[in-house]
Design a binder for these strands. Structure first.
Length: 413
DNA sequence: TGAGAATGTCATTTT
DNA sequence: CCAAAATGACATTCT
């Protein structure tokens, strides 16, 4: 991508000079310095991605079996490990759930997608984002409208706790910066949240294509992390499918990368934007099916933009993977070709040596014959010809002529 | 902690 | 000419 497509690259030169490494530049980017350039992608990120809840995704995938393409550990080609539901369950529940508000969408924009039919009936809003003093799990247990940020952050906290060796005990009001770090350290495997399009806050939002639209959808501040709450299961319409705790299968002694604990950024974006179908479908459906699916719902322009971007990124992600695979295969093939050509070269060098050797012998014989023939020639007086004055030359027809040194036979004769 | 690998993403080119 | 795929380049994260 061209330099400058990421807003932070336009920051003052001294900043870039000070921040020599990419990581340092990232830190610089997190400074309040507003990006002076417009990067539409920056609007794509969900500011409350920190609230992503692996458990929620596990649940969703139980209801939404993925097709062949899976870029997420929970979205494999085979049935999700924790999936206890047959495929139809998804379409039945999920689509029914999500289709219901669509009939109401004509009334107004996005809000129609909201509770009670939207994801978990939860509200993505900073206004509902429980602050540090917000009732904890047990209290939220009775609150059927627990906020998504809170719920997501709770499970995220648990997932992180698992990732860090079960240190998630003793949940306290999380440090804001730690939440941020959590975001920023997300894996590049779709968890990557710290690239140039991060938008932790609504500040610095770009006016271009989608950014402002997305920003409208995310007036969210990061809420604290909460312990995984049982209340989530009750508060969620998905509670009919008790979510299996997200337990990625890991090798012994291996610290799981966060990429294996969660799903892609686009999935979180879709979740936050209340996209009524899974990203897996957005990406993998054929064009016609995709258009049909999209046309079934009355989606807002920001939602459509996000869906298009998710599809484009998903397609490109697969394309990049295939491209790299092909590149590696080409490299292997070229290395094999190189070895083969090397062997061929050695063989040709040996052949050439033999040919040169044979040629030398033939030249020796020819010279010997030349001398023998020349010495046998006599002029009219019976005297031998002087080699300094005459030479033998061959015609293309095979004839042999004695030619004075001062002359030469025409090549054609 | 730094280097290199792996991966995601965007812009651009190719098909 | 348009859409999709392929690819180069860059940023970030992981090992």
């Amino acid at each position: 991508m061209p330099l400058g497509s990421h807003a932070w690259l336009f920051q003052p030169l001294e900043v870039l000079q000070e921040g020599g490494t990419a990581r340092e530049r990232v830190e610089e980017r997190e400074t309040p310095v507003p990006p002076p350039s417009g990067d539409p992608r920056q609007g794509l990120d969900v500011p409350n991605e920190a609230l992503y809840d692996p458990a929620l995704y596990t649940l969703m995938h139980q209801m939404a079996p993925a097709a062949s393409y899976g870029h997420c550990p929970t979205l494999g080609d085979s049935p999700v490990p924790s999936c206890s539901q047959p495929a139809p369950v998804y379409d039945h529940h999920y689509l029914d759930i999500m289709a219901a508000p669509c009939s109401r969408l004509g009334v107004g924009p996005v809000p129609a997608m909201d509770s009670p039919y939207s994801y978990s009936g939860m509200v993505i809003s900073s206004t509902l984002d429980p602050g540090p003093g917000t009732p904890a799990v047990g209290q939220m247990d009775t609150n059927k409208t627990a906020s998504l940020p809170g719920l997501l952050s709770q499970a995220l906290g648990e997932a992180r706790g698992r990732a860090e060796g079960g240190q998630a005990e003793g949940y306290g009001p999380p440090q804001p910066c730690s939440a941020q770090e959590d975001l920023e350290s997300d894996s590049g495997l779709s968890l990557n949240y710290s690239d140039g399009d991060s938008m932790e806050t609504t500040e610095g939002l770009e006016p271009s294509r989608l950014r402002s639209d997305y920003a409208e959808m995310y007036p969210v501040g990061y809420g604290p992390h909460y312990p995984l709450l049982p209340a989530f299961q009750e508060a969620s319409p998905f509670a009919m499918q008790p979510p299996q705790p997200f337990k990625p299968q890991l090798e012994k002694g291996r610290v799981p990368p966060r990429a294996e604990l969660a799903c892609s950024r686009d999935e979180r974006r879709a979740l936050a934007m209340k996209i009524p179908f899974p990203t897996e479908k957005i990406v993998n459906l054929p064009v016609d099916d995709f258009n049909e699916l999209v046309s079934k719902y009355q989606l807002t322009e920001p939602q459509l933009a996000l869906i298009r971007d998710i599809r484009r990124r998903g397609k490109n992600k697969v394309a990049a993977q295939n491209c790299r695979k092909r590149k590696l295969e080409n490299i292997v093939q070229l290395e094999q070709d190189l070895e083969q050509l090397g062997r061929e070269r050695q063989r040709l060098l040996r052949d050439r040596g033999e040919v040169d050797k044979t040629l030398g012998l033939m030249k020796q014989k020819l010279g010997q014959l030349y001398r023998e023939v020349f010495l046998m020639l006599r002029d009219e007086a019976g005297n031998p010809y002087s080699p300094d004055e005459y030479s033998l030359q061959l015609t293309t027809e095979g004839g042999v002529f004695l030619v004075p040194r001062s002359k030469k036979l025409d090549s054609g004769d």
